[in-house]
Design a binder for these strands. Structure first.
Length: 160
DNA sequence: GCCAACGTTGGC
DNA sequence: GCCAACGTTGGC
């Protein structure tokens, strides 16, 4: 089986937006508290993998730009920040439960590609993010779907 | 704000 | 192991 190379990661722009990532250059993808999403970051993400940066609960919700996985997986430090929003008192420091990767900014799209546009595209009918009830905050994306979204966005980045 | 979908928890 | 209750996500 070929390694996965393409991802979609969701963030509420009020919490962390593509503009925040552009300003900072890179960030820890912190606060993921879902086992399936964690397993993908822990077991599947590789340095260099490309990421669709998705704005959720936004106006409009949609793909706002591109990022790239920039580190190997490591424990999410926010799980041990007692006063932080992502504290997990049941996580053992000697065997941390929550794992993350860093992502770096690649490109901010001129305009968000709204979810409605993804749903309107027949070639994207099988894409996970357009499926009903799909709540994973980190999800794999087929290369063909990734390229299609980049084309819809008028992306500068070329996908080989 | 509503609510459908889905994950987690905990009683049994 | 079942499943009801509850919490969260996220589109609308």
């Amino acid at each position: 089986m070929a390694k996965r190379r393409y991802w979609l990661m969701k963030s509420e722009p009020g919490t962390y937006s593509i503009q925040d990532l552009e300003r900072e250059g890179s960030t820890m993808w912190e606060g993921v508290r879902n086992y399936q999403a964690r397993n993908l970051m822990r077991d599947e993400c590789q340095v260099g993998d490309l990421v669709l940066f998705y704005h959720s609960s936004a106006k409009p919700s949609g793909v706002a730009g591109l990022a790239r996985v920039s580190t190997a997986p490591y424990p999410d430090p926010t799980q041990f920040e007692v006063k932080g929003p992502y504290h997990d008192p049941t996580s053992d420091p000697n065997d941390p439960r929550w794992i993350l990767v860093d992502v770096e900014h690649v490109e901010t799209f001129p305009e968000v590609v709204p979810l409605t546009a993804l749903k309107a595209e027949p070639a994207l009918a099988d894409m996970l993010v357009v499926q009903k009830g799909q709540r994973l905050s980190v999800m794999p994306v087929d290369k063909d779907h990734f390229k299609r979204v980049c084309r819809l966005a008028g992306a500068k980045t070329k996908i080989r």
